[in-house]
Design a binder for these strands. Structure first.
Length: 573
RNA sequence: CGGGAUGUGGCCCAGUGGCUAGGGCACCUGGUUUGGGACCAGGGGAUCGGAGGUUCGAAUCCUCUCAUCCCGACCA
């Protein structure tokens, strides 16, 4: 590509709406342009990098036996009604009608379509395993798109879906994809961590996220300082402990007047107690069922854990009216003792730590003191319902503590089980001639987000520092003095040589001053700059600048091809 | 959806009731320059987000609306 004719405009200043470095640099380097909030045009430089990431993905997935398909973005509502998600996917699913008034949506993900596609073709276990993938645009009407390609509404995603005859076989597929993802992100030159993850609206019960470590990451990750445990903050487990109960120190249950003292802070201040001596009691709607959730007063409820524990589709706090109906008191005075309407009670294990706790009395303006587990109330479910925090002991080993990192989620693998195959009757005949649902997994990679994450991780003050594998161009040939015929000729010759060698090469043949070209080259981040100047050329040499290190070398013109080919080979190892 | 903020050439910004709306970057022409974002001269490009209102007069004041960004809630 000749820069003199490139569809490319670089910029010194950034629009103020670009807040993170990857967005700023992609904008300045002329890679993307915003069309609407969270919706971007990909210009040639960006597309070249995206295509390289896609090529790596295709290679690694084909190695694992995956097969590429392409499904439509526009999807009929009836499939979503069949899976049940039409009703609870929420506003993120962009819905619309066609001219015949039929409901459609833009695909935010493709479990429904793929399951439908597969069930029309799947008859026998002999056909399995299948792992089908596509690379395609998704649309999710995010409440708050942000950070350029990091969280767009329309974005390019690789999604894959596996179909197996058994849970064991599905786990094998899961493992293959885990390996493929590791290879893919390594090849893209990223530093990342695979962490335990929650499954959210996709469903299923086993999942790992691939998190690129970066300060600007939206996700919190907790990892052990000692062992290799790592999990998304919302999934990270709290270590199980043994609690001893000494009923001899139990004090009697007492009602105390706490007028207008609703929050944990208010009640602890009013009674002169510590937050951990309170039981935080919250009424949650878990799908259609109201459940009282108890956690220690100094901890935060973790809705993701509740959703997973109850295998629920939707979890949210009950509204004030429901709370009043159940407790018989205004909100802020709920507790496990003496509920007006008996509902299921589920408690975090941590509430057993202290005796003589305080909780709402289910009576407006009153709390109870001397509340003791088992003696005064029982719970149906006991589990881990709170957020783990940095500094807490590792849930797996006995040595380590949890440390916090920020991460950008570039990929996620899920074990789905039969959630979709059952609701959508994606069945086959097994070895015993019995009709059974396929066991599924699904696997996503945010392609654009991977690009953004690569920039977040690889840049300096001057601009992008591309890993060789995903650089839009590997080499930029820079003839500096366009009035010097030798310089121009050598520039054109090298440009042709590199193209013939299969190197991705561009030539800066613009009539600009040297400084301008250098700054532009550093901004765009070509891994290698081949600088051709009159003086060095007179010695039969050209200069090579290695973007990653800033190193400059003089190399004989006759040796430059071998040198570059070799450098590229080393960089891609 | 709650809180905060912003909309003035492609980008960054100035202009808070009064002449034809300014500057920098970018763009075009000519000249000088030419190894780390050059300089001089000339030039093109804006219905000041939109609609309505107040006023002799509105980018500026008022009302509504649209869009965008940040924090939160939410979300692969």
């Amino acid at each position: 590509m000749r820069l003199s004719n490139a569809f490319l405009k670089t910029m010194k200043e950034v629009p103020k709406e670009a807040q993170v470095v990857s967005h700023q640099l992609m904008f300045r380097a002329g890679m993307i342009q915003k069309l609407a909030s969270g919706i971007y045009n990909y210009l040639p430089m960006a597309l070249r990098s995206l295509r390289k990431i896609e090529a790596i993905i295709r290679e690694e997935l084909e190695k694992k036996g995956c097969q590429e398909v392409l499904m439509p973005i526009v999807q009929p509502a009836e499939l979503w009604r069949e899976s049940g998600r039409w009703d609870y996917y929420g506003a993120e699913l962009l819905r619309f009608k066609d001219r015949k008034d039929s409901d459609f949506c833009l695909g935010p993900t493709h479990e429904e379509v793929i399951t439908d596609m597969v069930r029309k073709n799947l008859k026998s276990y002999k056909q399995l395993p299948w792992n089908l993938y596509q690379i395609q645009s998704k649309f999710r009407d995010e409440i708050r798109p942000r950070f350029g390609l990091m969280r767009g509404r329309e974005f390019i995603m690789k999604d894959a879906y596996s179909f197996d005859e058994s849970v064991e076989k599905s786990m094998e597929n899961y493992q293959l994809m885990y390996e493929a993802y590791t290879d893919i992100f390594n090849r893209c030159g990223l530093k990342f961590k695979a962490v335990d993850a929650a499954t959210g609206a996709i469903g299923g019960d086993k999942s790992h996220e691939f998190q690129v470590l970066a300060e600007s990451g939206e996700d919190g990750i907790l990892s052990c300082s000692h062992c290799d445990y790592a999990a998304n903050e919302e999934k990270a487990a709290v270590k199980e402990r043994q609690f001893k109960t000494d009923s001899s120190i139990f004090t009697p249950l007492e009602e105390v007047h706490t007028p207008n003292q609703k929050s944990i802070e208010e009640v602890t201040a009013f009674l002169g107690k510590k937050p951990e001596e309170l039981i935080k009691s919250l009424v949650y709607m878990i799908d259609e069922e109201a459940v009282l959730i108890l956690v220690p007063g100094n901890k935060e409820v973790n809705e993701a854990k509740i959703q997973a524990f109850f295998n629920a589709n939707v979890v949210h706090l009950a509204d004030d009216k429901t709370v009043e109906e159940i407790t018989g008191a205004k909100t802020g005075f709920a507790g496990p003792v003496g509920l007006k309407k008996q509902i299921k009670i589920a408690a975090d294990r941590g509430i057993q730590e202290f005796p003589n706790m305080i909780c709402g009395a289910n009576k407006t303006d009153y709390h109870l003191t001397g509340v003791n587990f088992e003696r005064d109330y029982k719970v149906e479910e006991m589990g881990d319902f709170i957020h783990a925090l940095p500094g807490e002991p590792c849930p797996v080993c006995d040595e380590g503590k949890l440390e916090e990192h920020r991460g950008i989620e570039v990929g996620q693998v899920f074990y789905l089980g039969t959630k979709y195959s059952e609701s959508m009757s994606c069945n086959f005949l097994d070895r015993n001639g019995k009709q059974v649902p396929a066991v599924m997994g699904c696997y996503g990679i945010g392609v654009g987000r991977t690009l953004a994450a690569a920039i977040e991780q690889n840049h300096d003050e001057a601009g992008i520092v591309w890993p060789m594998a995903i650089a839009p161009y590997e080499v930029l040939v820079m003839p500096l003095q366009l009035k010097d015929e030798d310089v121009v000729n050598v520039g054109n010759t090298l440009y042709k040589w590199f193209m013939d060698l299969g190197i991705d090469v561009a030539i800066d043949d613009r009539n600009e001053r040297a400084g301008f070209k250098f700054n532009d080259a550093d901004l765009i981040g070509y891994p290698l700059q081949i600088i051709i100047g009159s003086k060095t050329l007179a010695e039969g040499m050209v200069e090579v600048k290695i973007r990653a290190t800033g190193e400059k070398l003089k190399i004989k013109v006759a040796e430059i091809q071998d040198w570059v080919v070799n450098f590229k080979k080393e960089a891609l190892k």
